[in-house]
Simulated scan of single mutants.
Amino acid sequence: MNVQRTPNTLPPVAGNQSIVVRRAADRGHADHGWLDTWHTFSFSSYQDPDHVQFRSLRVMNEDFVAPGRGFGTHPHRDMEIVTYVLEGALEHRDSMGNGEILRPGEFQRMSAGTGITHSEFNPSKTEPVHLYQIWLLPERKGITPSYEQKRFAEEERHNRLRLVASRDAADGSLLIHQDARIFLGTLDAGIPVTHTLDAGRHAWIQVLRGSVALNGIGLETSDGAAVSDLRDLTITASTNAEVMVFDLP
């Protein structure tokens, strides 16, 4: 895959020079029968020079995998891969000897580094699996491959942003080899959560379920938004919602 290290260059939301919205319906899409997949950024046969990546966030794929189907063994290298299951289950096997089943509320982090192979499979005979697979560019090439899987309890992320991945594994989060922090929140309707960016930092907000307002801008299920030149973020749930926030250099 041709990886370009350029930020997203879409025009900002009218009247707001700091927030760029990526609507769900505008993403790349492919329906392979067994796999219904949506691409926020260029991926596989979907190539859009205006949507290559945002900062170190390279891939944001929302996948629906049919029962008994999945991705056969394939290679990765020099990428930080984070997977989150919303519904169903995903079975993972890799060349490091890991074999786990990922369920809703669980995160998986795989540092591909110098090279790994793995497969991902829906073990259910009746239920599809709905997941996000996220790739971040690593801070350097040639990292020793590694794997983690962790559940974050509902009460830890209810009406708050819970750190789930970070460069230093702070607060029991997964370790990622990039100066990025990933947060997860499940919000009741009408409840706001806030996040403050340090000077020079950027954010990506992905709405996993429900609808929210980001500093007054409405976002629906599967919408994303890039934030730059803004310090204080307020995310208010319009309906019960689940959101992921990426704090990026």
Rank of each mutant, 00 (worst) to 15 (best):
F64L: 15
E80M: 08
L35Q: 01
W34F: 14
H32T: 04
V59M: 14
Q53L: 01
G33I: 05
P75L: 04
L57G: 11
A66W: 03
R77S: 15
R58Y: 14
M60L: 15
D50K: 14
V65T: 13
S44C: 03
L57N: 08
G72N: 10
P49G: 00
M79E: 11
D78W: 08
Q53S: 15
D63T: 12
Y46E: 10
D50E: 12
A30Y: 07
G33P: 05
H74Q: 05
F54P: 08
R55N: 13
Y46N: 04
Q47R: 12
P49D: 11
S42F: 13
H74Y: 04
L57P: 14
W38M: 04
T73L: 06
D31G: 04
R69Y: 13
P67I: 12
G68N: 03
Q47I: 08
V65K: 03
V52S: 09
S45W: 09
V59A: 12
F41E: 06
L35K: 03
R69G: 00
H74A: 08
S42G: 14
E62P: 09
M60V: 14
A66E: 10
Q47S: 07
W34V: 11
D48G: 05
G33L: 13
H76L: 13
V52D: 03
S44V: 04
D48H: 09
H39K: 05
D48Q: 09
G70R: 03
Q47T: 07
S56R: 10
E80Q: 12
G68E: 11
R27A: 05
D50H: 15
G33F: 13
S42Q: 06
F41S: 07
V52A: 10
H51S: 08
P67L: 08
T37F: 00
V59G: 00
T40G: 07
L35Y: 01
F54L: 07
E62W: 02
H32N: 11
G72Y: 03
G28Q: 09
R69W: 00
H29S: 11
R77I: 01
M79T: 12
G70E: 06
R58F: 01
F41M: 10
D31C: 09
H74G: 02
Q53W: 08
D63L: 04
P75I: 02
M60I: 12
D36Y: 05
L35T: 02
D48L: 09
F41Q: 08
E62C: 02
F71R: 07
S42M: 09
Q47P: 00
R27C: 05
S42P: 00
F41V: 04
D48E: 11
E80G: 10
A66H: 01
H29E: 07
H29Y: 14
R55D: 06
D36S: 11
F71C: 06
F71G: 02
F43H: 02
P75Q: 11
G72R: 08
H32A: 13
M60Y: 15
R27G: 11
W34E: 05
R77D: 15
T40L: 06
A66K: 12
S45E: 12
D48Y: 06
H29A: 12
R55E: 10
D48I: 15
S44W: 06
V65P: 00
P49L: 01
G33V: 10
R69P: 00
R69L: 07
Y46I: 00
